[in-house]
Design a protein around this nucleic acid. Structure first.
Lengths: 328, 328
DNA sequence: CTGAAAGCGCTAACAG
DNA sequence: CTGTTAGCGCTTTCAG
């Protein structure tokens, strides 16, 4: 791979001039420019980002922190981030933390090292204290999970209201015994969705029963299956279930399909609207989050922040998608 | 952020000594080392990868090329790559090409630029000519899709044999009218799987009928739904379907579940064994690829190649996973 | 309009 | 065992 030196030599100009042509910055004679361009073609030259980055002390890389790439919820957001980033000549580095602090540290250090210009965190398990620390000197955006009253800008949906509306829908359908499959309530979104669930129940004077609230450790299908099995073992089975993620809801559906006999149909409601949710049998009723758009916005916010602009948090609209799993 | 200079000053030593401590290379007095370490702590110093990379002309970044992050088939492989990479102090950069040549070029250039040390391509749409070109001077590994007789090392499964066995299983179940939902046959894996399909049919003297072979443009669920709808419209409906990807098979299952009435049950077989495939109703019979392991191997092969070692291609074992969709 | 030269942060000869 | 120094490839003053 040729370097700028060789181009300069080949073109019979100085490296400075080559650099000028590269960045088509200040005035260069058309004639000179042509000579340089010829040399670039001839030697099939590509400027080294390493040199450029060192000099400019930027990497044009955004880090995207997430617990696991396997959840389709994240993949949709990533698509949005990626497209926006590329359109602005940025690249993204996907950072699966696997909820391991060591990994998180690697990535934080990359930012501190200037190996990456900023970070979008979608990881609910992120060490908020460290992230806040980092955000003092570096651009940081939160996507989906955020910190209430925190100082890091975020893009998210209103989980409380969304859950409230979801459960209300289940109630209006005539269900009175509504269970909740929630994830770990150390996460804000989990607490908010539970709050929405409880608000709806209270509004309709329905009982909030502990045995109808099941908390899972993770969001994989299997945990949804597990949760539903527990609920089906109860003496008094619920007749509707609100799961805080489509993956859990799909697991619940599975448990229902091939599991223990139930005396009556059970309605299932998910959250996210991942693409698989319309492929299940029955198809899944869910609360749609505008994931792709959230990704785009997060990337835009990060770029604003990198330019030093002040960035406002955004709460996006959600939408109830009614499908077969609640039409019994 | 402090730099090496400041650490040297703070510790009262030269930058070379600091560098030595950092890379715990050659002998440094315990005393000197301590002084440096104190300075590092005091100034909360992190060595700049940018400087280091430029100097060493390596980035410890592997590029992973894939058409789209949304296919769960890839996410499993990525997990393997990622874990192996991190264990070896590498990071991966996910590169969705979206099957767009411009994007591909960006990533190829990153490698040429020394911004990345090597590339693992899982993208069937990749420009093989350019990739071969690149592989002359840079480490390149193919994962899943590969080039027959090409010079780039790959890790894959034997698609022909796998398809053959899958279809044979359908035949042994008593099915005589077997359809194929294939993807675009410009891809090698698609051609191989079709070949396996045809070999099985021929062996059992079953007819190969053009109208029972449907080629989709993409692998999303929707295309599977589409394909199945077409097959169901045929005068003579098949009684089993082999789809070359689980996503297509799941779409086919969906079409079957809520679509046109069929006179007889239709068996469905997929390929990949993505995690969804056990969540469908009925659960999906499929050919399992060891995706996670393939990812690990691909990463190991790339690292070998980066060390200048010669790398041999690997064909992994597949496995038939029998589930409900073929038990009618 | 163009060139010379400094310097981004680091590592690795080479000397001492 | 440690310091000096050159240089990785680039951009950007500052002169001319």
């Amino acid at each position: 791979m040729a370097n700028i030196q060789q181009i300069a030599q080949h073109a019979g100009v100085s490296v400075a001039t080559v650099s000028r042509v590269l960045n088509n910055a200040t005035s260069v004679t058309p004639e000179t420019r042509r000579k340089v361009e010829v040399a670039i073609k001839a030697l099939n030259y590509q400027p080294s980002m390493l040199g450029r980055n060192l000099r400019n002390s930027e990497s044009r890389l955004m880090l995207v922190l997430l617990p696991s790439i396997s959840n389709p919820f994240y993949t949709e957001i990533i698509n949005g981030i990626q497209n926006t980033a590329i359109a602005n000549n940025y690249n993204i580095l996907l950072c699966e933390t696997d909820s391991k602090p060591e990994r998180e540290n690697i990535y934080f250090n990359m930012v501190k090292n200037k190996l990456a210009d900023g970070i979008i965190s979608m990881d609910p398990t992120v060490n908020m204290q460290k992230l806040n620390e980092l955000s003092k000197d570096h651009p940081v955006i939160l996507c989906s999970e955020y910190e209430q009253g925190g100082s890091i800008p975020y893009v998210t949906v209103d989980s409380e209201v969304a859950a409230y509306q979801a459960v209300k829908h289940l109630i209006k359908l005539g269900n009175e015994k509504i269970a909740l499959i929630n994830s770990d309530e150390k996460f804000l979104y989990a607490r908010l969705r539970r709050a929405g669930y409880e608000r709806a129940l209270k509004e309709f004077k329905l009982p909030i029963r502990d045995e109808w609230i099941y908390n899972t450790k993770e969001l994989e299908f299997e945990h949804g299956v597990q949760a539903m099995r527990m609920l089906l073992q109860l003496e008094e089975q619920p007749n509707a279930v609100f799961a805080v993620s489509d993956t859990l809801a799909i697991g619940a559906l599975k448990a229902l399909n091939n599991g223990i006999k139930v005396d009556h149909p059970i309605a299932i409601m998910g959250f996210d609207n991942i693409s698989f949710s319309s492929m299940t049998n029955p198809t899944l009723t869910t609360v749609a989050q505008p994931m792709y758009k959230m990704g785009c916005l997060a990337a835009e916010m990060l770029m604003s922040s990198m330019k030093g602009e002040k960035v406002e948090s955004i709460v996006m609209d959600h939408e109830l998608i009614i499908r077969e799993s609640t039409m019994l």
